[in-house]
């Protein structure tokens, strides 16, 4: 399997770095990793090219993770791309809402690299 092209969406640049490091520690073979700090920036990236995996925060200014998910529904290049939400939300309701509008899974902050692997690897098919 070729290297994964990944989009990490979070308003915290520190968190984007931690997520990327966790993916590497989880043993995923990362290729290009792009970052966005809100849903609108992320939609712009998705419109420019295809990703193998998208990880997104929920609580972000400008456009939050739930609006981003709704926006993805109309984007051809996002079809079949697994989106995993990474959230501090203790709220089941918002997680359920994210899953109902297309997220394939979620990871609750704080998290360990093992938890990232558990949630992400099954979504990537063979080789990862």
């Amino acid at each position: 399997m070729s290297k994964l092209r990944v989009l990490i969406v979070d308003d915290s640049s520190v968190m984007r770095k931690i997520v990327e490091r966790s993916l590497r520690q989880a043993g995923l073979d990362l290729g290009e990793v792009l970052e966005a700090s809100n849903g609108a920036e992320a939609l712009a990236e998705v419109n420019k090219g295809k990703f193998d995996l998208i990880l997104s925060d929920i609580n972000m200014p400008a456009m939050d993770g739930l609006e981003f998910l709704r926006g993805l529904a109309g984007v051809e290049s996002a079809k079949g791309v697994p989106v995993v939400m990474i959230t501090t939300e203790g709220s089941e309701a918002r997680v359920v809402e994210a899953l109902s509008v297309g997220a394939k899974g979620y990871i609750r902050k704080p998290f360990t690299p093992e938890q990232v692997k558990e949630r992400v690897a099954p979504l990537l098919g063979g080789g990862q």
């Binding site: 915290s12 520190v14 972000m60 959230t87 501090t88 939300e89 203790g90 709220s91 089941e92 902050k109």
Partner: peptide, 25 residues
């Protein structure tokens, strides 16, 4: 972000708040 995670973790431990309390950025 530490504060965000502490706040989220705090409210997720309290059933009456988990689904009924929103966090700001």
């Amino acid at each position: 972000e530490l504060c965000n995670m502490v706040a989220g973790n705090f409210k997720s431990k309290i059933t009456s708040l988990a689904d009924h309390c929103m966090l700001s950025v």
